[in-house]
């Protein structure tokens, strides 16, 4: 446990020395929190959302909670898309930290002395995973908290607020988000341990976002709608995938290959 803590502290000490990395971690959740709040503010000021109900997929109109007007329903629909983005954040934010984690140690030649210590592969990978995932999860939750508090302040109708902060979305952000972060980080570390160039690691690691983009555009286009069942199912599948990814990551982390194949 001590060694995992040491790896996390080491990673953070290195990563957070770079102010741009720190900025990129904070900036995206902040933007994702501010944009829907601005939208809610504009809708409240203009009441213009009533005119746009026709822009909304019919299925969503049917799913709209009772007691909401068409305009309020449109507000919920539009802003919910951003809640979906909060699920995407823990997937995106840690990629550059995780992608650099092993290949960075390779390029600075610090991997060999590190692997010469009595640290196990599992300790090293868990340390690296947590070091990349925790800031992403914390930043996402921080952004979501700003969004939730802002929604409380800006929206008059408590029914709209309840719809925006529906338990399904809370589950999505609090459960699926961290699980996605672990998936993304493990994938990025796996890639990072098998390439020689940090840029290649980042490019390849970004592939992990694709499935969530499918969900995002599916929801926007009305192809399907995310509901509690979908979120729970996604959570269960992600637990299994994360578990498998950690096992695969440890198995594929061949110290010898990593040390001897790259120059």
């Amino acid at each position: 446990m001590d060694k995992i803590k040491t790896i996390i502290q080491k990673e953070w000490a290195e990563v957070f020395k770079n102010r741009m990395v720190l900025f990129s971690i904070i900036f995206m959740p902040l933007i994702f929190a501010v944009i829907p709040l601005v939208m809610l503010g504009v809708f409240n000021q203009t009441g213009g959302a009533e005119d746009m109900t026709g822009e909304m997929p019919a299925q969503f109109m049917n799913m709209c909670p009772e007691g909401l007007s068409g305009g309020e329903c449109f507000q919920v629909y539009m802003v919910s898309q951003f809640t979906l983005l909060f699920m995407m954040l823990p997937l995106i934010i840690p990629i550059n930290i995780a992608a650099y984690s092993i290949v960075g140690e390779k390029t600075t030649h610090s991997l060999e002395p590190l692997l010469a210590t009595p640290i196990t592969t599992a300790e090293l990978l868990i340390g690296k995973t947590l070091a990349a995932a925790i800031p992403a999860i914390v930043a996402t939750l921080g952004g979501f908290l700003i969004y939730a508090v802002g929604a409380f302040i800006l929206v008059d109708n408590p029914l709209v607020v309840r719809s925006l902060l529906d338990p399904m979305w809370l589950l999505a952000v609090l459960l699926v988000g961290p699980l996605l972060a672990i998936l993304s980080v493990n994938f990025a570390i796996l890639v990072s341990s098998r390439v020689n160039d940090p840029r290649v690691a980042e490019q390849l690691s970004a592939v992990v976002i694709v499935p969530l983009l499918v969900v995002f555009f599916g929801q926007i286009s009305g192809l399907f709608f995310i509901n509690s069942r979908f979120i729970l199912l996604a959570g269960l599948i992600l637990v299994a995938i994360d578990f498998i990814m950690i096992q695969v990551g440890v198995r594929l982390f061949q110290r010898e290959t990593i040390l001897t194949r790259w120059k």
Binding site: K10, A13, E14, P113, L114, T117, P118, I119
Partner: peptide, 30 residues
């Protein structure tokens, strides 16, 4: 690994951390 020390061909220090912090990290790992 616990009983040997190694100076690798290139020192491989964490360049943006202090000398003391570099040693602290390895002292914990060892």
């Amino acid at each position: 690994r616990r009983s040997v020390g190694i100076l690798t061909e290139t020192p491989g220090m964490y360049d943006n951390l202090s000398a003391q912090r570099n040693l602290e990290i390895y002292a914990h790992l060892y």
